[in-house]
Design a protein around this nucleic acid. Structure first.
Lengths: 193, 193
DNA sequence: ATAGCCATGTAACCAGTTACATGATTGA
DNA sequence: TCAATCATGTAACTGGTTACATGGCTAT
């Protein structure tokens, strides 16, 4: 489980309430690690029990009270331990691929429609990433330096979405009966290291 | 849940035992949809209860008996229904990104090592895909035509792994203190449709 | 012997999703 | 008055992983 570690990373960056974390999960980090508010509140409770985070209640005039959490020393320790451990790479797990794999001529037209919808979603995501990237490049050098790591993760998202879009286009083409390629996608760029 | 649909797709392609399905999940379709043997056996039991599949026991001399499953008419119907429904796109969910997002100078060296390990895994996967692709292109035209859809899904995997490798290389570079890019990844290729 | 493949299963646990629930404040 | 945002939670369910379990056959 990494939800707890994602939370610790976010809190270490900046203390905040559960609500606050949820909104951060929706933007930024949420592009590659997701959590619902239910999960976040549960996990914060759990982390509190284990003394990896602690909170103070902040009273507010114009909004409900909130519990502002921060990482304890034990929490920083736990995060450090996690960094020592190797995480396993996620597997690509996409129901659309199952559909493409198994579609017969009867299913093809509907599947093409679904792929087109999917493309719209991906284009929307790409547009969002693009604007985030533009925002990043509008910063001064020092700021860009500070946010190099979040920006790096954004680039991961961009590459992912671009690859997805390329594939969707070609999938639609082929399912429509377009001609097959005569050459493999590879050869690949020579890899460093 | 799509495990059941993945199983139905596989069985429709070819009847087979649970064990058989597991090995198909390890190769081919397994590159983008995964299942353990426990899941497969449970799901087959469930699908049997719902009469979406049925099995005959095949006795074998040199191996234990096996239950060979095939899709029933109701099963084909269920698959058809699933094709009518829109599936939701999977989210990128990668703990390594969380690590990169939150790593401080203390964590960087270890993280670079982990990224290097990760790169090896991805290169291995890419080599496997490459050989699968070579095998595909070694077939005659009619055979390539028959397997166009499985090959399409393979291309998805190739693009994914390539994107991952590119990103890992750049992540390692940046974490080592390499200079930041001066230009965004985008502009993007103009999209069709 | 012993490792590896064939073949099938149960049980416990963990993580994630969906549904249900409450209640204040702000702006259109 | 209605929708949106802030703010926090419980409960039930589903899906996925890990651990445990059995047993024969084949090749080294």
């Amino acid at each position: 489980m990494s939800l707890r570690h994602a939370i610790l990373v976010l809190l270490q960056d900046h203390p905040g309430s559960g609500y606050d974390l949820v909104s951060r999960f929706r933007s930024g980090i949420g592009h590659f690690w997701n959590a619902t508010h239910q999960q976040v509140y549960q996990e914060l409770k759990q982390l509190s029990r284990e003394r990896l985070v602690q909170h103070e209640v902040h009273e507010q005039d114009e909004a409900p009270d909130k519990k502002v959490y921060q990482v304890t020393r034990a929490g920083r320790q736990a995060l450090g331990d996690w960094y020592q451990q190797v995480v396993k790479p996620p597997k690509l797990r996409d129901a659309l691929l199952v559909k493409v794999y198994g579609a017969g001529p009867k299913q093809a037209p509907g599947l093409i429609q679904e792929l087109e919808q999917h493309r719209l979603l991906q284009q929307k995501a790409l547009a969002e990433y693009q604007s985030l990237e533009a925002h990043y490049f509008a910063q001064d050098r020092a700021t860009r330096e500070r946010f190099r790591q979040p920006y790096l993760t954004l680039r991961r998202g961009i590459r992912y979405v671009q690859g997805t879009l390329e594939w969707i286009d070609e999938a639609i083409d082929w399912l429509r009966g377009g001609k097959l390629p005569t050459r493999p996608l590879l050869p690949v760029r020579p890899s460093k290291g």
